[in-house]
Write a protein that binds this DNA or RNA. Structure first.
Lengths: 195, 195
DNA sequence: GTCTATATCCGGATAGAC
DNA sequence: GTCTATCCGGATATAGAC
């Protein structure tokens, strides 16, 4: 995303990304026009192209930044001792990270088909890397006998899907607090893998 | 969907729906044009409007028919005795129904935001009704002591999400047969609710 | 029942003034 | 750095011929 030095660049650039993220998440990439994004930011449509070469790149950058931030955040956690606790740490981490970024999460799995093939491949690689983080934990627990898992890959996908499903119904200020949700899902996951 | 009597109506009408379903699932509602659908069917774009008043209604009809078929199919199952077996029946049913209709499944949860508010409400009601079918089974098992569930609603959403996630990675002729998948998920679900 | 032609509008992206 | 004006293509939906 090319960015020229100068007056409002530091404000307008992030504002464009924020607006695009919000609008893409709400209405879908294909249904949102560059004019809408510009209007939300308060600039003319032409000004957007000072910050992004095109609409596709704007989408890709949003998704790419989200996925790399997700991976970096998990890799920056301090592993707790014991694979069972490490799994619980993953669950709590995942819920925290995703509840804080509902729009980016929405994009990351709803707009894959609006990426060009090359961009799609890049995001898929990152997504697969995140799945592998969980699968690594499950495989370790399986080897040590801490877990009893029939098929590691299927269990990985099942748990990721279960956790990802939270965003469908979660609302700030709803019936369940974030901590309560983390407790409930920690227990669901634990039961799924415990011997 | 208005339909005039006459020569090719019985062929073209379903052909339009088939093409629209396939294209919407592949590229997304907003990214597919009426011209594309018409070309896929082999008619001019204008001819589509003999079978649907507009693009939105075409989308809604596809989603609505899928959801009502889903509910009808479940309600038509002969309940097995015992709530634990009934839950296993739900898992096998869900997997069968959804694996057979990948495109419709995709639409039903990816294109919700492209529905008008009124159409959205109608589909949401049906979706909620399906969730309630599962929740009813879980609640019954909880009451009889057959299951040990901390929060029935959360467990319902967690299991639905887990099952829905299959479509993300399932491929015909892949590593796992349908029966194998049903067995694996049956066990995952069983562990999630068993006392 | 379908086609061709068209009305009308809106999309992404660019050029040049300020 | 942003605005205004614009190019150009393609969208939905309709009208009238066959």
């Amino acid at each position: 995303m090319a960015r020229k030095a100068g007056s409002h660049a530091d404000i307008t650039g992030p504002a464009i990304r924020d607006a695009a993220l919000r609008l893409f998440a709400r209405s879908g990439y294909a249904a949102v026009s560059m004019r809408q994004i510009a209007a939300e930011v308060g600039v003319g449509a032409g000004a957007l192209y000072l910050y992004t070469p095109d609409k596709q790149t704007l989408l890709f950058d949003l998704m790419h930044d989200h996925m790399t931030a997700l991976l970096a955040a998990w890799d920056a956690t301090v592993p707790v001792k014991g694979v069972a606790l490490r799994l619980e740490q993953f669950v709590a981490f995942h819920i925290d990270f995703h509840i804080d970024r509902p729009d980016a999460v929405f994009l990351a799995y709803m707009e894959l088909r609006n990426l060009t093939p090359k961009n799609f491949a890049a995001i898929e690689t990152l997504r697969r890397a995140y799945e592998d983080r969980l699968e690594t934990v499950l495989a370790e627990g399986q080897e040590t006998g801490a877990f009893a898992i029939e098929d590691t890959r299927v269990t990985t996908m099942a748990l990721i899907a279960m956790l990802a499903g939270i965003h469908v119904w979660y609302r700030d200020g709803g019936r369940l607090s974030r901590t309560r949700i983390q407790t409930l899902y920690r227990d669901l996951v634990r039961r799924t893998v415990s011997p």
